[in-house]
């Protein structure tokens, strides 16, 4: 059975869904090369959605465009119905969209606990005026954050490492640290750029469980850019396929596997043979 693209690109359909993230006709060229060429998709609130596609499809550029690291040539991005196109990354972060990076990027010369505490939003102690005249405000908030961070670290199994420098963690532990750090910021949308890259299979399972747990516990919407299709199939309710800078298809993994265009562009025969490629 072949399903047409229009059926699969559900954004703009008459379903009465609430979108956490809406990307419409996003375009970005670098020196005449169109990296993103009309990407369009909607991410439903409270879901875990995968964003897949071959290397060079423009996934990372889409992530950078959504998070404000680069500004689009045209098109728009809406976060919870609000237009965030062209805002600064920190403004988008403040509005509740937190992103991670392809390579783990911890704060190496700070401890694991500090990595978490510094990631919380709205610490009054980050204002110079309060540092000078009302230092207690920052101290009080810090004390709350320490406890919250400790509990988070306990959940993620990093508690014993809390006073270790983040630089000394293993690759897998750094991935866990990134996720637990993101929890501290209480995001509404969490955009994870290849969170499973370079992680051993056992830990991939565990990271997946954490994502599902956070999704259920806090209602956080997840967008996962990922090459590991096994985990995408397992935890994502919907998957967006990007190829040549545009949305190729949207659907469940089962649906996508039957889509010829998707198979040709990315999956290429048996999915499981290509896992991790």
């Amino acid at each position: 059975m072949t399903v047409t693209d229009t059926e699969l690109v559900r954004q703009g359909s008459d379903r009465t869904t609430e979108y956490a993230l809406q990307v419409s006709d996003l375009r970005k060229s670098f020196g005449g090369v169109a990296a993103v060429n009309g990407a369009t998709f909607g991410i439903e609130k409270g879901t875990i959605t995968g964003l897949i596609g071959p290397n060079g499809a423009g996934k990372s550029t889409v992530v950078n465009l959504i998070s404000g690291s680069i500004t689009p040539d045209s098109g728009s991005v809406k976060l919870n119905g609000e237009d965030i196109t062209g805002l600064e990354p920190h403004e988008i972060g403040r509005k509740g969209l937190i992103r991670t990076f392809q390579i783990s990027r911890e704060y190496p010369e700070m401890t694991v606990l500090e990595n978490l505490i510094v990631s919380a939003k709205d610490n009054p102690g980050e204002k110079l005026f309060n540092v000078m005249f009302r230092p207690k405000l920052g101290k009080r908030r810090d004390a709350e954050l320490v406890q919250k961070a400790l509990e988070t670290l306990l959940t993620f199994g990093l508690y014993p490492l809390r006073n270790e420098y983040a630089a000394n963690l293993s690759g897998g532990q750094k991935r866990l640290l990134e996720l637990s750090r993101a929890v501290m910021a209480e995001p509404t949308v969490l955009l994870l750029d290849e969170p499973m890259a370079g992680v051993n299979p056992a830990l991939i399972e565990k990271l997946g469980e954490h994502i599902v747990e956070l999704n259920q516990k806090f209602g956080t919407t997840f967008v996962l850019v990922e090459h590991n299709l096994e985990i995408v199939e397992k935890i994502c309710s919907e998957v967006v396929v990007v190829a040549l800078g545009a949305t190729l298809a949207v659907g469940t993994m089962a649906e996508l596997r039957k889509n010829k265009a998707v198979v040709d562009a990315y999956l290429g025969g048996d999915v499981h043979e290509r896992v991790g490629s």
Partner: peptide
């Protein structure tokens, strides 16, 4: 110090 360690991440976490 977080900015010193990785400016982009601090920015992504909503801090100017």
């Amino acid at each position: 110090r977080a900015v010193r360690d990785d400016q982009d991440v601090v920015e992504a976490f909503g801090k100017n």
